[in-house]
Design a protein around this nucleic acid. Structure first.
Lengths: 338, 338
DNA sequence: CTGTTAGCGCCTTCAT
DNA sequence: ATGAAGGCGCTAACAG
């Protein structure tokens, strides 16, 4: 059993409050007493009991980030960043899987908020497609920051990528290569970014006087399998598209797989682009051209925003939009390989 | 501010102890009182304060999983499983990045153990290559379960894949296809599984009277870039190997990339196999032949083992070895495409 | 500057 | 079967 504040007080021959002052770096302690306490802390191996502190302060110093399992991205790249923030700010960060509209997920969320264990939440898409999350947290008055929110609510802080701008830029890039028949793979309807990206694609076509064709838009659900199916659909057309812009990288991987399966040479016979720039996108042959979203940065900003709010430091911007950057790799080129 | 146990007691006209009995499902409460309390709980929206409970029980009900950031696998696939266990068993599960021998990581670990916030730990490779972890936790008497431990210590429970068996099986499979010149990509020296896999490869060669050649073994560090470099090295030989067995899937992805970069047809001109069966292995063209390690199962077993130990239910087996299964996909075939 | 007194919300012990 | 008292380890509020 570890030493408690009382043990330290006894060792340092002072009151527990003085010990408390020293370990919390409060002022009003004489240098001499301070160093006596510090010595006592060292010799006893004392460390504050975080649980007791949390109880009396009525704060758990824990935040929770809701993630939809099954997406590649959230994983490794992001965790290190998140946890580092936790360390800096003295928060424990709980990663919680959340399936929208799933009762088990919802119950878990209710428990976490009701039992006073979580000070604040960050949601990632498509978790917040389930209004339950925002409603519940509002009821319990637990602060929430959304990443790429489905609905941008004035009162809820968020950090989002600029999907419209990104999709516009990528489409324009393909057009500049000479492509005219550009297929597009969409994601779930309950995901804002999917809609915004489609819109960026449409506007870019429009600005360059390329007619929009319904038949060139196929649903991929933003998954690998969805990408395969959708790509097969588009490639079956006559004439087939010379380029496919998948609304996210996972779907693009599916499209790439399908193209290779059909013996198409990428990019000579077909250009394929994605969106997100997953860690894997540079590792897949021939390298995926995509829009880089600075996921680490987005997650970090959101988490810091939440913690700032929890600590009562009102940040100047509660709604942040981050732009995406084109990354050209081997999967794109001019139609017909020049 | 939520209702407390006192509020419920007042509403139900009984003592707080009775409320406590009801919410903890203890016996010795009359049916009538019990239902009165339950009604009061509902009408007040009471939920126990987990922080208070943790303090008085001197348990945080939190366990921590140490993961090395940068590996693909740990991520999405695994999290949902882990968190579900947490829900079942009423534990919060903290995922913590850990870099072996890194002082920041170490400090963080000290804090977590010293401040009474974590009841137990699970380590994943190569975190435990740093003896600091086991030493520290032993000192603080915090239970530990290791996944694929670097050193198997009698006193420390673990769950591990059978790397030797798996590598043996995969090598034998390649031999059965007719391969004789099989390259092997190794991982970091501080990773047990790397050594075991190499050993399985050697023994399989040996059993089939194929001479072991040093030049066919190249270091990959179990990363994509490592796989690229190592594959380039092997393919530069004369004659080049007809198959490459990468000690893990990430390195195999690198080898695959390099092969395609050099215009080699996989598997006709070169077979490539990996180990682990990452989620992505089926999504990369032409599909990676690999040994499937049931990662979810391993992580689940380890976590449940830890929680069982924490709850005082001594499990019958404290050291578990799980075997791997061959998964044949498009990246392997007979040498010379028959 | 330093110490004393009260809790935080809950569970444990021991009466009743 | 029920309740009263005490304390987990800490900090907040107020005295000295």
């Amino acid at each position: 059993m570890g030493a408690t504040i009382k043990d330290v007080a006894r060792l340092a021959r002072c009151s527990i409050k003085t010990v408390s002052r020293v370990i919390n770096e409060e002022p009003y302690v004489s240098d001499e007493l301070r160093s006596r306490v510090q010595a006592a802390v060292r010799s006893s191996g004392y460390a504050p009991n975080v649980l007791a502190r949390r109880l009396v302060q009525r704060r758990s110093n824990m935040v929770c980030i809701l993630m939809y399992p099954g997406f590649y991205q959230p994983a490794s790249a992001v965790f290190s960043t998140i946890m580092d923030i936790g360390y800096d700010e003295d928060y424990d960060i709980l990663v919680q899987p959340y399936f929208p509209s799933n009762s088990r997920s919802r119950n878990r969320l209710v428990d976490l908020s009701a039992e006073h264990r979580i000070d604040g939440f960050v949601t990632t898409p498509p978790c917040d497609a389930d209004d339950f999350v925002a409603d519940l947290l509002t009821t319990y008055r637990v602060p929430l920051v959304q990443i790429n929110p489905f609905n941008r609510i004035d009162t809820v802080p968020f950090v989002a990528g600029d999907d419209y701008q990104g999709a516009y830029a990528l489409t324009e890039y393909l057009i500049s290569l000479g492509h005219r028949r550009i297929g597009f793979l969409t994601g779930p309807r309950n995901m804002r970014s999917s809609g915004d990206r489609l819109y960026g694609y449409r506007v870019a076509l429009d600005r360059h006087q390329i007619p929009f064709t319904d038949a060139l838009v196929a649903p991929s659900e933003f998954t690998f399998d969805g990408g395969c199916t959708a790509a097969r659909l588009l490639l079956g057309q006559d004439p087939p598209p010379t380029a496919i812009f998948a609304g996210n990288d996972e779907a693009a991987f599916g499209a790439l797989f399908t193209a290779q399966e059909q013996g198409l040479r990428v990019p000579d016979e077909l250009s394929i682009c994605g969106y997100d720039d997953l860690a894997f996108s540079r590792n897949i042959w021939p390298g995926l051209t995509t829009m880089h979203q600075p996921v680490e940065e987005i997650v970090e900003t959101a988490t810091r925003l939440l913690i700032a709010i929890l600590k009562g430091k009102e940040p100047e911007r509660r709604q942040v939009i981050v732009s995406a950057r084109l990354v050209v790799r081997g999967s794109s080129g001019p139609p017909g390989g020049r």
